[in-house]
């Protein structure tokens, strides 16, 4: 019988593959080989069984009747009558009280979930930047404007907080006469050095890319694009807010420092961001 043969061959193949798999495990590793042998071991067994089932056991079609699922109105009424025991349903006051007690207990038991995290408070409104904080790069080196070529970009942090997620800032240097600063920010960009929060205002990804020819910062997550020359206004993509701008200045040694923290929350928007708590 042909099908029987095929099934038998499959089972033998499976056995051989299983043994080889054991050998491979002890000899040394090779993921592709392991995967192939495991697939053969499983597949041989599976194929054999399917072939066997298909041809060796051609079971006849059978028919089964659906018995009615519903138990009918009478049985339902009887069940209802049983549930509505007078001793339970007549005591409305007790029923209400037991429901009330259950609810208060549930509330009390749910309260410890509040320990899972702090209240947001002011956390989302401020970063580690402070007035006079020097801008440093990832190696903790402070930066002078002349260290950065025109169209150069670097990720900076407040001194002492390298790697701080919410303070990460992109520092771009452009030719000063190209800049069209927003009202009131004319002196925030000494020698064309301009700093924006690196956290995308859409969903918080770090802005990864600077397109020098267009003077645009680009977020790789959903392609929001911000115009560096015009206060990082979004020009494309789902981000609706400009990147907050860090007010910059030079200290007495000529290093770049922050004049203050960001004046608005950085990162993705949230409902009370314009007010504060």
């Amino acid at each position: 019988m042909k099908a029987g043969r095929l099934a038998a061959i499959s089972f033998v193949l499976s056995m051989v593959a299983s043994l080889a798999l054991v050998a491979v495990y002890f000899v040394g590793e090779s993921t592709p080989l392991e995967g192939t042998l495991l697939a053969l071991a499983l597949g041989g067994l599976g194929l054999g069984i399917v072939v066997w089932a298909k041809s060796l056991m051609s079971a006849p079609e059978v028919t089964e009747e659906h018995e009615a699922l519903s138990s009918g109105p009478e049985a339902r009424d009887r069940t209802k009558a049983m549930v509505q025991d007078d001793e339970v349903t007549r005591r409305t006051l007790l029923v209400r009280l037991v429901a009330g007690a259950g609810t208060t207990l549930a509330a009390a038991l749910a309260i410890p979930a509040l320990s899972l995290g702090p209240r947001p408070g002011q956390t989302l409104f401020g970063t580690k930047w402070t007035s006079g904080a020097r801008l440093v790069d990832r190696n903790n080196d402070p930066i002078r404007p002349e260290d950065l070529p025109i169209e150069g970009v670097v990720t900076v942090f407040p001194e002492g907080f390298v790697g701080s997620s919410d303070s990460q800032t992109v520092l771009v240097r452009v030719a000063p006469d190209l800049l069209e600063p927003v009202e009131g920010r004319q002196d925030w960009s000494p020698q064309g050095c301009i700093g924006y929060s690196k956290i995308c205002t859409h969903a918080g990804c770090p802005i990864g890319l600077y397109r020098a020819e267009a003077h645009q910062l680009l977020c790789p997550c959903h392609q929001s694009t911000f115009d560096v020359l015009q206060g990082a206004e979004p020009v494309f993509g789902p981000a609706a807010r400009p990147l907050p701008q860090l007010p910059l200045d030079l200290d007495d040694d000529g290093y770049l420092v922050a004049r203050s923290d960001y004046l608005e929350p950085v990162g993705p928007s949230f409902w009370n961001m314009t007010g504060g708590e």
């Binding site: 697939a39 053969l40 069984i49």
Partner: peptide
Amino acid sequence: TGLMLLVAAVLAALGGL
């Protein structure tokens, strides 16, 4: 049972290769 083993076999092949 056969189908289960075949599904597992396909997954093993994918996982390995």
